[in-house]
Amino acid sequence: MKNMVEIRWHGRGGQGAKTAALLFADSAMSSGKFIQAFPEYGPERMGAPVQSFDRLSDEPITLHCGITSPDIVVILDPTLMATVDTTAGVKDDGVIIINTALSPAQIRKEMGIKGKKIFTIDASGISKSTLGREIPNTPMLGALIKVSKLLDIEKVLDDTKKKLEKKFRTKPELIEGNLKAIKRAYEEVKGE
């Protein structure tokens, strides 16, 4: 399929990997893309490794199989990299975005990753300072938008604001905090 992008999210149960995949697809649909977003269902529980997926395309998507060779991998928790093969099947020119305070070069060396493009962002740090707790999924969205160049950041912020206003009617600080987190990650994500 022309112009199709496949994304795999790695997280731990409770970190919001599924929500992030759904949010990203939802924003992409608002930007006129055809979308799919789905989690992997296993015996999931809080803290266990989980995956979720996105497909985006300029044409209708009829594929209904899993994603085995993603264009982009987003890793919400860097400790997963030691136990889960988070780079499995990633294309040679594929992109890996990692939530870490380390630089791309440091992570590459530490994890022994060959080829592929590595980007890093301290999403945990950003969420702690903007939301007061560690919820790395929304800042990772910001990083993904910057790196993938698939969506317009202003449009996504606008769209997310509307959605969060519905969800957090009684907690306006969470709306502002989440938007700030997305924006900061968008600006601060580093590549090699």
Binding site: A37, F38, Y41, H64
Partner: peptide
């Protein structure tokens, strides 16, 4: 595959 996958 369909019940839990988000589509437009």
């Amino acid at each position: 595959i369909i019940s839990h996958a988000m589509e437009g």
